[in-house]
Simulated scan of single mutants.
Amino acid sequence: MTAARVDIVDDTYLRVAPAVVRGWFDDEERLMRLWPHLQRTLVRDRGVKGLRWTVDGAVVGEMEVWIEPWWDGVILHHYVRGTRGRGAPADVARRHQLRWKRAVHALKDRLEEATL
């Protein structure tokens, strides 16, 4: 029996400077609350361009946030590639996506409101 693949791709536009978005990912406690189902190991810090981790836990593989400058803001790309971890729920990808969308939309609302 092979492990179920997890492939998540998400893109969200934020009308905020890249450095501001990148700074949001510097709060380790926030990231632990966002992804409590994953143990992350930083593989590459690309500065204002984003971060890449290996992950273990509910998903075994890799995860990335890529901050792409776009017009007067950024497109925040989020990728997860791997397999469902041992004991993870069958809908782990869906749960991860919903958790991410709630967090990124809250970030978007807070940061964009601050620029109005």
Rank of each mutant, 00 (worst) to 15 (best):
W35E: 10
W71I: 10
D45I: 03
G57F: 00
P69D: 02
M1Q: 11
V65T: 10
R44P: 03
H77Q: 14
P18Q: 02
I8V: 11
V59K: 04
R30Y: 03
R99S: 14
R5M: 09
H105W: 06
W35Q: 11
R30M: 04
T115K: 13
W53L: 06
V21K: 01
G87N: 08
P36C: 04
A19T: 00
R5P: 07
A114Q: 04
A114V: 04
A4R: 10
T83E: 15
E62Y: 08
E62K: 11
D72I: 03
K108H: 08
A90S: 14
R99N: 14
R110N: 10
W100P: 04
T2S: 15
W100T: 07
R15G: 06
D7F: 09
R30N: 06
R102A: 15
E68P: 04
R94C: 05
Q97E: 13
H96N: 12
D72W: 07
A90Q: 12
W24A: 12
R99T: 10
Q39W: 03
R30G: 10
P18I: 01
E62W: 07
T54A: 13
R30C: 07
R84D: 08
V80D: 12
E113Q: 11
Q39A: 08
R95W: 01
E28Q: 03
E113W: 05
D56N: 06
V65D: 03
V6T: 05
D91E: 12
R22C: 09
H96W: 05
R102P: 09
L38N: 01
V92F: 08
T83I: 14
L98A: 09
M32F: 01
A106M: 03
D56W: 02
R81D: 04
R110C: 09
R102T: 10
W100H: 14
M32K: 12
P69Q: 02
A103I: 07
V74T: 06
V48M: 07
I8T: 04
A88N: 05
A90Y: 04
W66N: 15
P18G: 05
R94T: 08
R30L: 05
A90E: 10
G57P: 00
D45W: 02
A90P: 06
H105N: 11
I8A: 11
G57V: 00
R95F: 01
R30S: 05
V6E: 06
H78A: 13
V16W: 00
V9S: 15
D11W: 03
T83M: 15
G57W: 01
A103W: 01
L111P: 03
A19P: 00
L51S: 00
R81M: 07
D10F: 00
R22N: 05
T54I: 06
L51F: 03
A58N: 10
T115E: 15
V55Q: 08
R22W: 01
L107M: 11
W100N: 12
A19V: 02
G85W: 00
